[in-house]
Design a protein around this nucleic acid. Structure first.
Lengths: 356, 356
DNA sequence: TTGTAAGCGTTATCAA
DNA sequence: TTGATAACGCTTACAA
């Protein structure tokens, strides 16, 4: 018998107590300790129970989730894959999800793609290896093989904001169509008539597609209206400042008989539009109106204040986590779609006059 | 013999391949497979090696990090505890750290305190349980017991931005004193004379203390200078808008013979100051100057543009991760302090006239 | 009600 | 150079 087996003194003085230590101190078997931990008051003599309890307290024992995971096949870990942590929307979702997970006793393993959507498979593989019980995905939705694979292996997946083509999974998102209608009709109401929808390259990203489509359909629907709006779309990339400037100039030229306004498809784009307006020296609101999807803490202080459709970001993250946890608890339903409404926050950038 | 033991067909068709599966397919022992994985070309007959290699490829085998962690005591996991993911500085650090960790083959487990600094112990306990090999801590530094405990157990800890009192650990941060001097002397140079340092409640948070102290010392040092600046400090909380308004009014009253300016200690405070200025209807720059620590993507577009000290945030996160990884590789040095310099970005909010 | 023992997927020690 | 075999810390039949 090696001394390291039995005498606690021979352990590294700082090592975690194991179930065997507890069993020894309490004078019971490991199985009993395990039962105490998992079934608590059931099937346990009060006497033994207290002995175990005391030993646990004395040693400061807590079970090793790693060992539990190995044995049970469940890890109490949830994998979160994010296209870009820099995106404030992603962060907000992350925040909501993390909170809900913690409350349910799950921990989050984070994998940031850094906008390199090709690594989605890599991310999922890495997280799978750690036996995460399920995934929350806020990614572009290309490179969808691994996710589908995970899903087919019975690991639940929840998609946030962006769908993956052909993937059967719960989906939690802003009601994109509603949000775009809200923004666009607000612009019409205020008096803008010549609208430009600006988004990042659509490139198969579902939320961008949906918003763009909603915009087109809004325009064609309300063409018959008293307002008779016009609408166009523009895709802007990070480096092509010139292109955006040109698009805005054309917008203003077209707007001979109606005021021009931009509807931007997310916070990143909004910032680009704001930058372009600054370059052109135009006033947000009177010269060109602006409403963007995504409200931010700084929106009130940019120019005359940026009008926005606020997403219930925390709620999106929270609901995504809760959906996932329900599945983990065995809920077996066909994939659900949960669409949350945006809220219009009107500020100076969608006011025609200097003060409304 | 239960069929599930040996016949692959009886496994859940989707289960991961294990080392035993590989061994069986290759016709070797588990030990051999393990050796192939860990020592590669050493001590292996070419014939056997290729058989193993083929089997691994055929089954798509990759070892279970959980099982490895259990056996080795090392998990290739790093715990990141953040006071508040909402803070853009924290996110930026997170981003840098996550990237470096991924490159080194580590995964990040995230725990967000949601600004409830009392839960720091809880966070560390939870992450410890998962055998994380080390910690990156960007927390307030109260509730320091658990971290110290982890450190004493030989788990390396790196502190980012905020020190923990009496804790021996690597520390990575902005050079706070330098940053404050940079900001303050810029204000003097431009022509501001009556300075107000605004920060969140200092309350034992090291970075806030250091910045405040640096401000005081800058003022007293340069009092003998030709500029003869005055300086005061103000702590502002999220809900006390009135207090901040009053502080700014007093600042302007004091500034009878010298232009007034605010030096804000981080992005959160900067936003509050901007909001207060909007409430008061004052112009940033001509009425009251402003330089804040932390540059943000929206800073150029708020008012006349917000002057800022940009922190090398990505670099901070990256270096924190690298420090940790060095320690994990066995580096045994006394605690290091790594201080990175900030960079001044001057914009309209620190320009006395309408255009410089 | 409790204990014994097998096994989760690895790695490490020892023989062969 | 390779193969049994015993751990790692835990859960769970099955026996007692």
């Amino acid at each position: 018998m090696t001394p390291s087996k039995k005498t606690p003194a021979s352990r590294t003085p700082t090592a975690r107590a194991t179930i065997a230590d507890v069993a020894r101190v309490a004078g019971v078997s490991k199985a009993t300790v395990s039962r105490f931990m998992n079934h608590r008051e059931k099937l346990l003599t009060p006497d033994i129970a207290t002995r175990v309890e005391v030993a646990i307290a004395a040693l400061g024992y807590s079970p090793s989730p790693m060992a539990q995971a190995l044995k049970r096949g469940r890890s109490r870990l949830i994998g979160l894959v994010v296209a870009d942590v820099t995106n404030p929307f992603s962060v907000a979702v992350l925040r909501g999800a993390e909170k809900a997970c913690q409350q349910a006793g799950y921990l989050l393993m984070l994998f940031n793609l850094g906008n390199d959507s090709g690594r989605e498979s890599e991310a999922i593989a890495a997280l799978s290896a750690y036996q995460v019980e399920g995934f929350i995905l806020n990614t572009l939705g290309h490179d969808t093989g691994a996710a589908t694979h995970a899903a087919s292996r019975g690991k639940p997946v929840v998609l946030v904001d962006r769908r993956h083509p052909e993937m059967q999974a719960d989906f939690v998102s802003l009601d994109n169509a509603g949000a775009v209608r809200l923004a666009a009709s607000h612009l019409l109401q205020v008096g803008y008539r010549e609208l430009l929808f600006v988004s990042e390259p659509v490139q198969g990203v579902s939320s961008r597609e949906e918003r763009e489509a909603a915009f087109r359909s809004f325009i064609s629907t309300s063409a018959a209206t008293a307002h008779r709006p016009h609408g166009n779309s523009f895709e802007c990339t990070a480096d092509d400042e010139h292109g955006l400037d040109q698009a805005l100039k054309k917008l203003r030229q077209r707007a001979a008989k109606g005021l021009p306004a931009v509807l931007s498809s997310n916070a990143v784009v909004t910032l680009r539009v704001v930058a372009a307006m600054a370059r052109l020296g135009w006033q947000l609101g009177p010269d060109v109106g602006l409403v963007g999807i995504d409200d931010t803490e700084w929106a009130p202080y940019v120019g005359p204040g940026l009008s926005a459709i606020a997403q219930p970001t925390d709620e999106l993250g929270r609901i995504a986590a809760l959906c996932l946890i329900e599945r983990l608890k065995g809920l077996d339903l066909p994939p659900r779609q949960i669409l949350l409404s945006g809220r219009l926050v009107a500020r100076g950038s969608s006011a025609v006059g200097p003060k409304t």
